[in-house]
Design a protein around this nucleic acid. Structure first.
Lengths: 248, 248
DNA sequence: ATGGCGATTATGTATATACATATTGAAACA
DNA sequence: TGTTTCAATATGTATATACATAATCGCCAT
């Protein structure tokens, strides 16, 4: 919902008290329960509510303030800041639709498909704690004859076992997953990158050329489902997000 | 014992004690005095050195750990981390908060300021139909000593006349505008780009290096207010958007 | 009314203390 | 020799307390 620091993903982890307080409040803010401008409870109220000392509450609130989620004012209290989020459009990230919107024929082509026990890197990408079976896919999205985007995906087979039976030869895993797994949460990372040999080769561009990289991790009911990385040649793609601030 | 104000000057500000400790250690790390892998003094040593309680030292070290500068290991001590890289998280709406969340001192510096009658390109950027006065600004956001982002901004003076009187020498126009103009709508464009000579120069990177470009147009009550372009060096910045599908 | 001024209040910072927890190194044991 | 146990140690979290600081409210005097 908003652009927020996300170093921890609480998916059933053991949290210390101040982390729990922080997490509770963040949840209320991100879910919109507490709209921008809303005054969150005073420290002494939270102290009573959580039956803890003010220092503990203070630690949580200080961190929220540092992250920019709330604003603290002496004598007045702490208030939810304007998030000015823009994630709304990222949600509709379906490459087929993008390509067809350009009036070009769309096609997906599988490059690689490997079923394996998750490596440490796989687990880092998915945010998994324990090892388990995963499906690693690589494929190309075409707009007409030209490669439009390279997709590198990891699917957690513990969460979506049936994906292990699917070949994904010419249907992209994204739409396939959407129809089967109701996701509850997603995180995007967007960055620029220079194309390495592999990427340059797949996308038919020069090595070192700038690319836009969009990574998405998706959870369903607290469990990691998939991690996907889309790599677009810089010149072919602009991400557009449009929104009004009234979302609160 | 001392509630003494320590007027340590780090950009001319008065720092609390734990901020000063944090700042001192950060300085040693960023300057290379303490190389990656180096064990920084134990909490009880810093306690003695600064003549303060362990809680105060702990607060500083915890923040450094959260910012990713150091790694803390029980029974072993705290160590300078290797990469200092990928943990970077980016918020679009306020760069100062982004930078400070990394534990680095923030600074804005104006590079250029031109008042002019809008050119055709200016009108395209702002989405203006008729000519009128605009203010073109260029400035650099710093994280510590390093350029963090280059900002190229255009302000529609027909909509915000008072901006024409402002110098924007060391205050960024973004926060200034937010306090004055209630915006009603915004549009973002995000893309990757190779740095040209100008950009490379300003950001102190190589020409041709990939950059993340975030452009924003803002309207207030249907009238274009400003167009801004942020250019980030690719290697150090990742944009993170997190949300749940609850919004529909 | 109204402008100043102290009291009140919430946050900001720091202290001393306590116990929990993870990890290491060494001693005790099989 | 290898393993188990245990104490020492550094960090992690939380407590109660204290005083500082900034902002606001309401009272009072002009």
């Amino acid at each position: 919902m908003s652009l927020v620091e996300t170093d921890d993903v609480d998916g059933g982890e053991i949290l210390s008290l101040h982390q729990r307080i922080l997490s509770d409040i963040r949840e209320k803010i991100l879910s919109g329960t507490w709209a921008p401008g809303h005054r969150i409870p005073f420290e002494h109220e939270l102290t009573a509510q959580y039956n803890c000392s003010r220092m503990t509450v203070n630690k949580a609130l200080s961190q929220l303030a540092k992250a920019g989620l709330i604003e603290r004012r002496r004598r007045s209290g702490s208030f939810v800041r304007q998030p000015q989020s823009q994630a709304a459009v990222l949600e509709l990230h379906d490459i087929r639709i993008e390509v067809e919107a350009l009036g070009l024929p769309y096609r997906y082509e599988r490059l690689e498909r490997v079923k394996r026990r998750s490596s440490a890197e796989d687990r880092a990408r998915l945010g998994l704690a324990a090892p388990g079976p995963v499906l690693a896919l690589e494929g190309l999205h075409f707009a007409g004859e030209r490669p439009f985007a390279l997709e590198q995906r990891l699917i957690n087979l513990s969460a979506v076992a049936e994906a292990g039976e699917e070949e994904f030869l010419d249907i992209a895993p994204g739409p396939w997953l959407i129809g089967r797994v109701p996701w509850s949460e997603a995180e995007h990372r967007i960055r620029a990158m220079a194309a390495d040999e592999n990427i340059a080769d797949a996308l038919d561009i020069d090595a070192g050329a700038p690319c836009l990289v969009v990574e998405r991790r998706t959870w369903s009911a607290g469990h990691p489902v998939t991690h996907v990385r889309f790599i677009y040649p810089a010149e072919s793609h602009t991400l557009v997000a449009r929104f009004t601030p009234s979302q609160g």
